[in-house]
Design a protein around this nucleic acid. Structure first.
Length: 502
RNA sequence: AGCGAGGUAGGGUAGCCUGGAGUGCCCGCCGGGCUCAUAACCCGGAGAUCGGUGGUCCAAAUCCACCCCUCGCUACCA
């Protein structure tokens, strides 16, 4: 069985999860489940990024300890992962996972051995209030854009990573697609960034600047490893490094890193260089999604429009939220979230289209045909099955290509087709007229379409899919089964798959 | 400012590369049909100067030029 190793990025835990995080979890999970349904042995790593100054500052603001903040918020992220159905195998906490500290140290050691780490004085414009360095161009009239104060010139000796050395190598890897950057637009951005010239970057902070929070530099307790230099290592930690190198040997390299557009560079440039330097294999693909806006506006605390995915799950369920995030948010561009649109999608698409088709089919079979249906000679129904088969191929191809949004539309087309076939065939009339065989043919076809729907919907809406497959008595969600005709069904009277919202 | 992506009915999209009646899809809206089904489903309809201007061509959403608007990227900052 071929392996497939996929990761989500690890969010900072300075605040609660928002729908943007949910989007990434869902996209990642859809890809992971699709691969499972294709017969891959899939592993998925997620986690939380905790060794950052942002978290320290957030904790100070709240008047609690960093440890406390990280524990609490990490738990929230984990809880969201669980509730949204993210099928993860490892949840790495960068500040609490012993293996992870070991990984960070190992990466450091390996890069150092390659001669890519050196000490250098760093001089920059530092805003004490932000606790951040600014470049000249970021300043507004020479002042910090946030606090309108003049930044201080601060000098600090740090460790640097010799990124410049890898410019040509990265350019080639990305250009040739050895490391695939999806979508192409992002790939071009990465290329233009690399072409503009790569400079070495600082990979440590003084303990003071880091407020003593983070993983110490091996052999130099006065310095803390820069958060990104440790955070990226979670992908290795999750694969088993260093405690289970057998597992790691099987899983690494990652097949896909799913990330948001804001951190593309860290993955497509820094991470690749770090891995080359450390003598480790490179990920095969970096999959970059857009951001979620709320009712057309950027999500922000000051506007107060942050949407809590856990609230949405409690209100509408995980599958409907998953459905919405894939269907209404384009896979690679920014997309919008609105509760109104979510409700409309549930009522008209999940309830009205998919849920109704399943319900009318299964209810019909159980009330009019004793719940049993067997293979029939196919007349008109053969064409319907052929069309469905074509759509299954489409779903498969689109998912393989990462076009999650388009794939889900095709899934919905299948139930749309089922509804139309059911309607046009009017089996209820056939039953009244006493034409049993004709009615049985229609329902035999519809039962198969339901089953196929259950299979292709599984990556997107696993709970509903499993329920549905249970009703038709076919447990498997393996994609290959979607291309076969099941000959005999014993159907149970279904419960409603999705409930209408008022 | 430089580089890149995009502007198609009320919203969201496909079509553009390889010109040929504004052709399609998902919602919303209006009307009709049906009754197996969660007032659901099926059919039909209204609604677009395809960002603007000019050009090439028998013919342009599609090719070219210019302009307007939106959005991304431009390093140590999710």
């Amino acid at each position: 069985m071929p392996k497939f190793y996929i990761t989500t990025s690890i969010p900072y835990v300075n605040a609660r999860p928002h729908v943007g995080h949910a989007l990434e979890f869902v996209q990642t999970d859809v890809i992971a489940r699709y691969r499972k349904a294709k017969g891959y042995s899939v592993s998925l790593t997620t986690g939380s990024d905790e060794n950052s100054l942002t978290n320290v500052l957030a904790a100070e603001k709240l008047g609690i300890g960093v440890r406390e903040l990280c524990d609490a918020n990490s738990l929230l992220f984990r809880s969201m992962a669980d509730r949204i159905g993210l099928s993860y195998d490892a949840f790495v906490r960068t500040s609490a996972d012993k293996d992870h500290a070991a990984v960070a140290e190992a990466i450091w050691g390996r890069c150092s051995k390659s001669g890519d780490i050196y000490r250098k004085k760093y001089k920059g414009l530092y805003c004490v209030r932000c606790e951040l360095y600014y470049t000249e161009s970021e300043l507004v009239a020479g002042l910090c854009p946030e606090h309108k104060v003049k930044p201080e010139v601060v000098e600090e000796e740090n460790y640097f990573f010799r990124l410049s050395r890898y410019q040509d190598r990265i350019l080639e890897l990305v250009e040739k697609g050895t490391v695939r950057i999806t979508p192409d637009g992002r790939k071009n951005e990465v290329l233009s960034f690399v072409k503009s010239g790569l400079e070495d970057f600082s990979i440590s902070r003084s303990v003071k600047r880091a407020h003593g929070w983070g993983i110490p530099v091996p052999g130099d307790p006065s310095q803390i490893i820069y958060v990104w230099f440790d955070a990226l290592g979670t992908y290795l930690t999750g694969a088993g490094m260093p405690s289970d190198m057998k597992r790691f040997g099987k899983l690494w390299p990652a097949d896909v890193h799913v990330i948001g557009k804001g951190i593309a560079r860290f993955h497509a440039v820094y991470w690749l260089a770090m891995l080359i330097s450390a003598g480790l294999e490179l990920p095969r693909e970096i999959f970059i999604h857009g951001y979620v806006t709320i009712e057309g506006q950027k999500m922000s605390k000051s506007i107060g429009n942050v949407v809590d995915p856990i609230d949405m799950i409690e209100k509408y369920g995980a599958d409907p939220l998953r459905y919405y995030l894939i269907k209404n948010v384009s896979t690679f561009e920014d997309g919008d979230f609105s509760e109104k649109a979510l409700r409309e999608a549930i009522n008209s698409e999940l309830v009205g289209n998919l849920g109704n088709f399943v319900n009318r089919t299964l209810t019909f079979i159980s009330s009019k045909l004793d719940g049993k249906i067997e293979e029939q000679e196919l007349g008109e129904g053969a064409l319907a099955m052929k069309n469905v088969a074509g759509l299954v191929d489409d779903v498969d191809a689109l998912l393989a290509d990462g076009q999650l949004n388009a794939a889900l539309l095709k899934v919905m087309e299948i139930s749309g087709m089922g509804n139309k076939y059911f309607q046009d065939s009017e089996p209820w009339k056939l039953v009244k007229e006493g034409d049993g065989p004709a009615a049985r043919e229609v329902l035999f076809v519809c039962a198969n379409i339901c089953r196929i729907l259950g299979i292709v919907a599984w990556p997107f809406m696993p709970a509903a899919s499993e329920k549905l497959l249970g009703y038709v008595g076919c447990g498997t969600h393996n994609f290959a089964q979607a291309r076969k005709l099941v000959k005999k069904f014993a159907v149970v009277r279904p419960q409603i798959l999705f409930s209408k919202v008022e």
